[in-house]
């Protein structure tokens, strides 16, 4: 599904460009959940931006393919149409653009790029209602501008709402668990698990073991200084939670 090989990327303009991703290699096969852990500043969010095509993040080497397609050459919207989805660590407030308008525009743009029919208004509303109910999101909230005045937890839930509406096939969750209360964590995890399927894959970036109790990973990777320094099964997350990163970092050095 997602295959990253020797990926190197920099952040920042020209002379101030800083190499953050450093010959990173990682493969997430279809149907699997991979967790990415690692200390602050390791490059986890940077990796998610590089994969989704944010401007200012320049790939200087290596490759990344989704189902064999080179995604690094694509515009962000083309990657989205191919199924990439990022649940942002810090969802952005967009004044003046109501959630429903935004998501419907996004959905129809993606469909258009894929050569599919637009969704009808009644179908859209029906789907939106069902998902909002499942995520315990107030219908009124969906009429408000995207994320404006939303609490931290509401913003995260809105990311998952968008994800469930758009039904992507490669999901990147960047610290979606931070800021969520215990009940919301469960609701969000249920949403993600509902999307799991043999032709989808998930990359969960997190600092905490707790989320991984609900979204159980097949593999856990430790990212440090822009590289995967260790990979293991779900027990690795437990071990990190107990002992911290020092041992793993020292062993890799």
């Amino acid at each position: 599904m997602l295959k990253i090989e020797n990926l190197t990327a920099t952040v920042g303009e020209a002379e101030e460009a800083k190499q953050i991703i450093n010959r990173l290699t990682l493969e997430v096969p279809a149907g699997e959940v991979h967790a990415i852990m690692g200390p602050n500043g390791a490059g986890k969010s940077t990796l998610s931006y590089v994969l989704t095509g944010r401007s200012g993040y320049e790939v200087t080497g290596g490759s990344a393919t989704l189902n064999g397609d080179d995604i690094l050459e694509m515009e962000p919207e083309e990657r989205a149409a191919k199924g990439m989805f990022l649940s942002f660590q810090y969802p952005v407030e967009i004044p003046g653009v109501p959630v429903m308008t935004f998501v419907r525009t996004a959905m129809n743009s993606q469909r258009k790029l894929r050569g599919e029919e637009e969704i009808s208004a009644p179908d859209f509303i029906k789907k939106s209602r069902e998902i909002a109910k499942q995520l315990k999101l107030d219908a009124e909230m969906l009429k408000r501008p995207v994320n404006v005045g939303f609490s931290g937890g509401e913003k995260k839930r809105l990311e998952i709402y968008q994800m469930m509406m758009l039904e992507p096939n490669f999901l990147i969750l960047d610290e979606t668990d931070s800021g969520l209360d215990i009940d919301a964590l469960k609701i969000v995890a249920d949403g993600v698990n509902a999307l799991r399927s043999p032709d989808r894959a998930v990359m969960v970036i997190t600092h905490y073991q707790r989320l991984l109790d609900y979204i159980v990973p097949d593999t856990v990777h430790v990212l440090y200084r822009g590289q995967v320094i260790k990979s293991g099964d779900k027990d690795l997350a437990l071990e990190l939670e107990k002992n911290g990163y020092t041992g793993v970092i020292d062993a890799a050095a």
Binding site: P76, E77, S109, Q110
Partner: peptide, 10 residues
């Protein structure tokens, strides 16, 4: 970027 990452062109 937020809008584009959801599939909306520039």
């Amino acid at each position: 970027f937020y809008l584009m990452s959801r599939g909306i062109d520039e």
